[in-house]
């Protein structure tokens, strides 16, 4: 049996098992912290910073998906400071995301749109250049549109950890970072066959299945502010 640790979560004294992350504990207690790069079955990476929370005594906010609980921690998951930070993080992602939601195949099931709606995000305050990459549609199994990628690395980790195929990798750095296949080739059938792990993990429209003729777009139509 793991040791029980007592922490203060949103003003309530609660206990959790040693080794649990703040996110684990919050979710176990029914508190919803938004996440994007975090997926339960994959190793955490700490890339998106959406799940940040306030921990008393910490100079910065901490990402709840990879920070273990410690005895006596005082945690706020929805303080005004936290909400503002989350909003800006989503806005930063949207700043370089193409404005093509109207025609995007994932429009109705897009996690980024859903998070933006939950956080009541309106017109973007940040502006950056967009990434323009050619749509990779040579493979009959998946279509890649890397201009929509938010670099959450779920596809890379899924391909490595679940499919165990190591097809995808991260290349370049900074704003130019990109998920690549081999030496940045368009994905084809030689590199990857029909396994769908990455497609099902992609939170946005960067990875999708080719839509068959007459096939409807998935999900209910989402109504989003702004």
């Amino acid at each position: 049996m793991a040791k029980e640790i007592e922490v203060t979560l949103n003003d309530n004294k609660v206990t959790g098992a040693e080794g649990m992350t703040i996110l684990d504990l919050a979710r176990a207690k029914g508190i919803d912290i938004p996440t994007l790069c975090y997926v339960e079955d994959l190793l955490p990476t700490g890339a998106c910073r959406l799940c940040v929370v306030e921990v008393e005594g910490s100079r910065t906010l901490v990402a709840s998906c990879h920070t273990p609980i410690a005895p006596g921690m005082v945690i706020q998951t929805h303080s005004p400071r936290v909400i503002e930070a989350r909003r800006q993080i989503v806005e930063l992602m949207l700043a370089s995301h193409p404005d093509t939601c109207l025609v995007c195949d994932k429009a109705n099931i897009c996690e980024l749109r859903k998070i933006a709606a939950d956080l009541d995000i309106g017109l973007p305050r940040f502006r950056t250049r967009k990434h323009y990459f050619a749509i990779e549609d040579v493979s009959p199994y998946l279509v890649r549109d890397m201009s929509k990628c938010v670099l959450c690395r779920r596809c890379i980790r899924g391909c490595n950890e679940i499919a165990k195929k190591n097809v995808l990798g991260m290349a370049y750095r900074g704003f130019d970072s990109k998920v690549v296949v081999d030496c940045d080739e368009a994905i084809n059938t030689e590199a990857c066959r029909d396994c769908d792990v990455c497609v099902s993990l992609c939170p946005v429209g960067a990875l999708s299945k080719p839509r068959k003729v007459e096939e409807k777009r998935r999900g209910k139509v989402q109504v989003i502010k702004g």
Binding site: G46, A47, L50, A95, T128, V150, G174, F175, S177
Partner: peptide, 13 residues
């Protein structure tokens, strides 16, 4: 390095 959103996107903004 480009790993996290605030630094990668924020420095660019």
């Amino acid at each position: 390095c480009g790993k996290c959103v605030p630094c990668r996107q924020g420095t660019e903004v």
